[in-house]
């Protein structure tokens, strides 16, 4: 997230116009569009490898397990 934030606050390209892709996409537009697509790729990786899948049935099982477990107050 820090890298994406740094890439977004790109003060080193503040005045950059070129490369002007296909004569209608100035640097500011295609760079930002590329970052947006990178976000989608990052979130896909996050969803696939870092974010646990939980369905309601599993939550119910966890609930049943927890009922027999001692709490901090016990």
């Amino acid at each position: 997230m820090l890298i994406m934030t740094a890439l977004h606050v790109d003060f080193w390209t503040w005045q950059t116009l070129h490369p002007f892709l296909w004569q209608w996409l100035p640097f500011e537009v295609w760079y930002r569009a590329l970052l947006t697509l990178l976000c989608t790729a990052l979130f896909w990786v996050l969803s696939r490898y870092l974010w646990p899948d939980v369905d309601p049935v599993e939550l119910k099982l966890i609930e049943q397990e927890e009922e027999g477990r001692p709490t901090f107050d016990d």
């Binding site: 697509l37 989608t40 979130f43």
Partner: peptide
């Protein structure tokens, strides 16, 4: 209904913003 649908929302959200 499920975390899978939260993941789908997160993944395609940037594209639809664009």
């Amino acid at each position: 209904r499920s975390t899978r649908f939260l993941k789908t929302t997160v993944t395609i959200y940037p594209l639809t913003v664009l």
